[in-house]
Nucleic acid binder design. Structure first.
Lengths: 211, 211
DNA sequence: TAAAAAATACCCGCTAGTGGGTATATGGGC
DNA sequence: GCCCATATACCCACTAGCGGGTATTTTTTA
């Protein structure tokens, strides 16, 4: 019996275990109703004609038809349906293709229930959701198109001081500048390196031999 | 003309440039009065008998007599005098010996004026002060006496997740535990690895092949 | 079985750092 | 002189993380 207030989900994955796992995860969620499941993308195409589906959860690697193709079909034939892509890995190229095809969200299969629910919530509201690791892969994608030479000398200097575990205040003292300035440099560094945390920045710095 | 309210300093370093530099730095500080300078530790011993000195700033590497020996002498003959050790490097062994000898503070010569003033302020109040890098060396000292095997499996797991740039909340979700628990694990990890920041921890983890 | 270690989880208080943004000064190139 | 890049520095709002601590439960060890 469909609840008029809940979001209707359709799950497609060539692995029945994944399908069952997702069903098990979502069965007690009162905001969502699973109106269908399948291992066959072709079957999905037919059943979507008969069902009222809000969100399609789809694997991206299926032998019969890829998630990219399925997404393209769905967005063309049923533009109102949001597509949430599921994958074991966050390969950059695939993410990009799925985005081009029109997905609204992308999460990895190894994420927790929380992130899945968060994604569904977002999609149900018409928003988009890209999990952490997916976002990180995207940022890496942008990052690889930049040259390290676009970091200024000052910024490199500050990265090195950060690696020495100096606080912003300490760095400011050492460089005879304001702490506010150090913060601004940090912002610029994060932006230029497309990193989102000190951990990411450190890894970037090691990879690019800044340190 | 000595100001009764200011702290009397005596500077000893075999390099006149360092002495002059410190004098220049401190000459306009109204809380401090430099009552004497010297390049000769032996001379210091004599002059301390005649002067009212609150804090002795001393180099640790002097040809005539090491800072350790001088400190021992001063603490024995003039126990009220606080000793602030100055050094180019933060060698672990030397730091330890100076501490054993009775210094109240230790900073590196490459630190900024701010840290010097902070150190003097602390010593003037009867407190101790060890600069960042000195503290770090001390922590490394403790750290090297520990085996990595004292980290539990859970803690290692969390370190790896931190390296993946996951937030505490995200880690909690993934491990099905409370965010409070993750925080506690982090505290324990910092304590066991004797690190004080994520940067230090990351470096530790790479060095010890945890990641 | 008792003790120790590990895992879990909370309380409280606080701030370093960050995201969003704006703006000015300086130096170099054209 | 203009434009651009870089360096400097601020405003505001906010919170993730951390330091200090306590405690209980579960698991492991002897």
């Amino acid at each position: 019996m469909e609840n008029m207030l809940s979001t209707n989900l359709f799950i497609v994955d060539d692995h029945q275990l994944v399908v069952d796992g997702l069903r098990s995860l979502l069965n007690n969620e009162e905001n969502y109703t699973i109106v269908g499941c399948s291992n066959q993308p072709k079957e999905v195409m037919e059943r979507l004609d008969e069902l009222s589906v809000n969100i399609l959860l789809t694997d991206i690697n299926m032998p019969e038809m890829s998630g990219v193709e399925l997404t393209r079909y769905v967005k063309k034939k049923h533009p109102h349906i949001k597509v949430l892509a599921l994958s074991m890995f966050g390969e950059r190229q695939v993410i990009k293709e799925m985005i081009d095809a029109g997905i609204s969200g992308y999460i990895l299969k190894n994420t927790g229930k929380q992130e899945l629910l968060e994604a569904l919530d977002k999609l149900a509201k018409g928003q988009t959701f890209f999990g952490e690791e997916v976002t990180r892969e995207l940022m890496k994608s942008f990052r690889n198109n930049d040259e390290e030479s676009h970091l200024t000398n000052r910024e490199i200097e500050i990265i090195r001081l950060i690696e020495c575990e100096h606080s912003n205040k300490k760095i400011a003292d050492m460089l005879f500048i304001s702490e506010r300035t150090v913060e601004t440099h940090r912002k610029n560094i994060f932006r230029k390196t497309c990193t989102q945390s000190i951990v990411g920045l450190l890894k970037y710095a090691y990879e690019h031999k800044i340190i």
